Amino acid sequence: MAGTYEVSLTVSSSNGCDSTVTKTFTVNGSDPKAAFIIPNGNALFSDTPVSFVNKSFIDNGGFGRITKVEWFFTDLKTGITESEIDDEPEPDKVQIKSYPLHHDLRPREYSVRLVAYSGESCSNSSGEMRFSLNGVPDLAIIPDTSICMETGTFKIKPPQELAGFQLDRESFTGNGVSSSGSFNLRAVGPGIHTITYTYVATNGGSASISTNIEVYPTPQIKVPDEIIIDEGESVPLYALSTPLGIHYDWSPGTGLNRFDIANPIAKPSETTRYTVSVESEYGCIGRASVTVRVLKTIVVPKAFSPNNDGVNDTWEIKYLNDYTNFSVNVFSRLG
């Protein structure tokens, strides 16, 4: 009869000394019942392991416990059955089983059966429970991308879904990216940034894929705002770039001895604003401008005739406006 019992063994020596040992043991009930449930059994997908919850018990108010359970997992397409034994079963203990990932539009069919044991010889088998594993979308790889900081905003193209699932919704996640895939380079700065794309199909299955976008810095160029020279003089121009540039392009080329180096010599005949474009080893381009102001030699008229005939009616010092600090003193013949 099922229950908890004690058994004692007493040993007596010839000298009349006794020694007793007592042990407790359990006789399990002889009526185990195998039972289990599959949580979310109507929405299972092949990319997620399936959970099976043990609900086995001793029936008819029986005493004792379930001592072992054995799970039988069958692929109904191939007929192959795999078994897993749990020698330490507990009520509501979860058995997790992973199945092959698939991208079929039609679900794949499987079954599971549970055998529960009470003691060594008493057992009970559950009925076979069938369930379906839905396929999940199959996404093409998004190649890693390199892009220059000066691009500003970059639109990431969603990858192709290869299995034929219908799209329900999609989104991008990651630093600096909107859900629609607009990547703001200025928000994240130079470096490697991981962006993840998620595709959710109408059957509820989803797939995600990540890509790395490496943002290269735009060359930062230091040039003076303005350089002042006298007419006929020349001056070197210096473009200090971080990171170092590999190609330089000065524009306009007027008055320069070269336009394709970091430090050309400028000898413009008039005030000129030069812009330098610097390309880094990554193909990124930065720009900066410097004005070379040419101070023309002033021309002072020796005479003028204010008779309103349209010729030399005013006394005007040519190019005087090129100078910022000056004074003009007019003296009579008598000083």
Rank of each mutant, 00 (worst) to 15 (best):
S46Q: 05
Y117C: 02
L105Q: 09
G205N: 12
T198N: 04
H102T: 09
I142E: 01
F165H: 13
E170T: 09
P49D: 14
N54K: 09
F57W: 04
V278S: 04
T196N: 02
F63I: 01
F154S: 08
A140Y: 03
P158L: 04
Y110L: 08
D249W: 07
D18M: 05
V27L: 14
G205C: 11
S241Y: 03
Y238L: 13
L101P: 01
D309H: 11
P39I: 05
N263P: 04
A2T: 00
S12A: 07
V294W: 03
E316G: 12
D47S: 14
Y199W: 05
A262H: 07
S180R: 09
Q160L: 14
I96A: 08
I298F: 07
N263K: 13
F331W: 13
Y238G: 02
S126L: 07
N321L: 06
N257E: 13
S125E: 15
V21I: 12
R273S: 15
T173A: 08
S121V: 11
E6M: 10
V223I: 15
C148T: 06
K267R: 15
V21E: 12
P137N: 12
T78I: 09
E214M: 05
G205A: 13
F72I: 03
V330E: 05
E231R: 00
C122H: 15
G255A: 04
D104G: 08
C284D: 11
N42P: 02
V53P: 01
T196F: 01
E6F: 11
P252I: 04
Y5L: 04
S111C: 10
P39M: 00
A207R: 11
S251K: 12
D87G: 06
S111I: 00
S56P: 07
T196L: 06
Y197G: 03
D249Y: 08
N212H: 10
N329G: 01
I227Y: 01
Q166Y: 06
N325T: 09
S83E: 06
L114N: 00
N257M: 08
G205E: 11
D92I: 01
T10C: 02
G127D: 10
E120Q: 15
A187H: 05
L44H: 07
